[in-house]
Each structure stands twice: as structure tokens, then as C-alpha cells.
């Protein structure tokens, strides 16, 4: 039995005929399983949606309560029979509520990773590796040059810069869902005790994290009048704001950007970043390779990212690997750099 008997690729995305569900579909479908709340994976307009309770809540925050017809929460580890398939959601360690989706038929067990990371993240449940026959993985950072350092080290660099430039505002570009809160939490763990300022666009989602028990300390929304006064402070904002007119009102702002892309200098320069912080919510190359091996899967599909390198790596190890070249998900480099606000 091969994976293609369980899953097929349709224009809307991955589809499982036996359960009659799409996974992270990029266009409206009758029945969808959603891995996590980033907008390229979780879109509005589906009929029935099954996801973790946090992901459903995040979708409602972003799209309004009527983002789908019916919703069904799935707790981590709970097995739900859909058609002839046992479906279960398992922590992916990507953002709050993110999940890998496990699909088990009588003949094959497959795991669709969604976006995931193995590195420590104090704002969400840690990645739980699932053994399976077939593994459908992302490869956003699927090149051996992407090795993410300890995120605490990067936050220490941010704090060191605040020491060196107490007269400058430190603007940290970070994706609104997940990355922003992770950076704030890491700052708190490193002993940053001043209020952390945020751009209005991330207020709702940050409140949601706090309600979910992620203690971020004192968070203040930046108003126009505050901007000139924030020398020596850290302001977290959507990446697109770094180069926006909005940022110029701060005292001699330092443009920092928390992203796995910051590992490569040319990427950081293209965005005019002065303090690149290599903080990623995706697996890096080493963890990607290690995860592929640890699942025990003999068949690997690569959904999006730098597919070619990981497919090559798998084939060198005798694994049956296929690139899916799926469009519609995040991070194709140029689009990402251009759009600025794409979800990492």
C-alpha cells in the first residue's frame, strides 16, 4: 500500500478520499482538517472544519465567528473516526494550537506535518514525533545552510544591542501569530523587565496567548504619541512595518527581524535589516533530516519550501521521496521577501 492510495493532490490541496477531507486546503472545500492558524494554511469559507481548539479560536479571531459552517475541536491525541480513517492531531511545536495530523487506515498510517519545529518554544506544546509509514513534511528551511541557533542566544543579542544603543528604539519585526509572542516570552525569560510594546495589529492575538496562560508580562500597545518616547525600548511589530512610514517616528530605530530567513545575509540585507535575529518556527535542516529518519517512514512527500534538497537527501538514503511543489503555502523566497507580511 502506498501513500498515493490514501492521499491525493487536488487543486485545493491534499485530499483523503476515504475520509472525504482536505488538509489545509487553499480554496473553500466542504470538509477540512486544519493544522494551524497561519493564514496560508487556515483559510475562511470551508464547510466543516476540524482543528485543535486553539486553532479554531485563532481562526475565529482572524476571520470572525462565521469563518466556517460547523467546527469540531480535536484535542491532542484524541482519535476521531472520519469515514474509514482514524484521524488524530498531535503537537507540532510550531505555534499555539499547531498540530500534525495523523491519518490511519487499515493498511497505512500517514502523518501530515503541517509546519513544525523541534526547537524549544515556551509558548506552545512541544513537537511530538509520530512513527508512521509515510510522512508528509514541510521543508521551508530545507537547505543545509539553515541551522537555527538557540533562540535564547538571539534574544541575548537583541538585549546586548539595547545596552549599546540605549538612545535608540529597537523594532523587532515578527509574524503576528506565534513568532511575536515567542520573542516576547524569550525576552521575559532573559530578564527583560520593561514593558514590551506592540503594534496594534498583533494586539488581539497577543491577548489570546495571555488568556491561554502564556504569561508575557506587561504588554502595551504603541500609540502615535508614544513613538518618539520609546528610546531604549523593544517594540514588536509585523515585519512589513519595519520599513513603513510608521517606523520613522521612533528615535533612530534599529530594524531587527526575527526569522529563520535571517540566517542568510543577503536575505537580511534585501530587507534593510540592521539586526537580524535567527529565530524560526520551522524545523531547520538538521532537525528536518532527523525527524524524517525518526518517523520510520519509508515514503516521504515534501509539501512546500526547498523541496529539491531534502528529496535528494532522502533518495541518497534509499527513502522514496517526492516533491509536491504545492502552491499557495508561505515562503517561496521572492514572494515572501516582496510581500513582507507572508506568514513564516
Amino acid at each position: 500500500m502506498s501513500l498515493s492510495d490514501l492521499l491525493t493532490l487536488t487543486p485545493a490541496g491534499l485530499y483523503c478520499p476515504e475520509a472525504d477531507v482536505h488538509i489545509d486546503p487553499v480554496r473553500p472545500v466542504p470538509r477540512a482538517l486544519i493544522t494551524h492558524g497561519h493564514s496560508d494554511h487556515a483559510r475562511a469559507g470551508h464547510g466543516a472544519v476540524m482543528a485543535t481548539p486553539q486553532t479554531l479560536a485563532i481562526m475565529a479571531l482572524r476571520y470572525g465567528e462565521d469563518f466556517c459552517t460547523t467546527r469540531q475541536p480535536a484535542d491532542y491525541g484524541e482519535i476521531v473516526r472520519v469515514g474509514s480513517i482514524d484521524v488524530s492531531f498531535h503537537p507540532a511545536g510550531h505555534v499555539l494550537g499547531s498540530a500534525q495530523i495523523r491519518l490511519k487506515s487499515s493498511k497505512i498510517c500517514a502523518v501530515v506535518s503541517g509546519d513544525y519545529k523541534c526547537a524549544r518554544d515556551p509558548t506552545c506544546a512541544p513537537f511530538e514525533l509520530q512513527r508512521c509509514d509515510a510522512f508528509v513534511t514541510e521543508a521551508t528551511f530545507g537547505l543545509p545552510v539553515f541551522r537555527h541557533p538557540d533562540a535564547a542566544h538571539e534574544v541575548a543579542r537583541l538585549m546586548e544591542s539595547c545596552r549599546l544603543f540605549p538612545d535608540r528604539a529597537h523594532l523587532v519585526g515578527a509574524y503576528s501569530l506565534g513568532k511575536a509572542q515567542r520573542v516576547m516570552k524569550l525576552l521575559r525569560e532573559a530578564g527583560w523587565d520593561r514593558p514590551i510594546w506592540i503594534h496594534g495589529a498583533m494586539e488581539k492575538i497577543t491577548d489570546f496567548y495571555q488568556q491561554q496562560g502564556v504569561d508575557l508580562g506587561e504588554i502595551r500597545k504603541v500609540t502615535a504619541a508614544d513613538r518618539p518616547k520609546l528610546a531604549g525600548d523593544v517594540i514588536v511589530c509585523p515585519p512589513g512595518q519595519l520599513t513603513d512610514l510608521w517606523s520613522r517616528k521612533f528615535p533612530d530605530p534599529v530594524a531587527a527581524f526575527a526569522s529563520g530567513w535571517m540566517r542568510v545575509r543577503a536575505r537580511a540585507r534585501q530587507r534593510g535589516v540592521e539586526l537580524p535575529l535567527v529565530v524560526s518556527d520551522h524545523v531547520d535542516w538538521d532537525d528536518l533530516c532527523a525527524s524524517v529518519v525518526a518517523t520510520g517512514a519509508s515514503e516521504i512527500w515534501v509539501t512546500h519550501g526547498a523541496e529539491d534538497a531534502i528529496v535528494h537527501w532522502c533518495r541518497m538514503r534509499g527513502l522514496d521521496a517526492q516533491p509536491l511543489h504545492m502552491i499557495g503555502y508561505g515562503d517561496e523566497d521572492v514572494e515572501n521577501m516582496a510581500a513582507g507580511e507572508a506568514n513564516e
Binding site: L143, V145, R147, V264, R265, D286, A306, H312
Partner: peptide, 25 residues
Amino acid sequence: DPVLFDMSYDYVGDLSETVALMWPT
């Protein structure tokens, strides 16, 4: 692996940086 190195160098665009990032730790 030479294939992975070429892909990486093509992406990064600078020899020293590619080596610095790819060096097996």
C-alpha cells in the same frame, strides 16, 4: 554532498558564508 553544496551555494551566493553555514557541526 556536492549536490547539496551546489544548491546551497546557489542560494546563498557567497562561498565563505555558504561554508560557514553548511559546515557540519
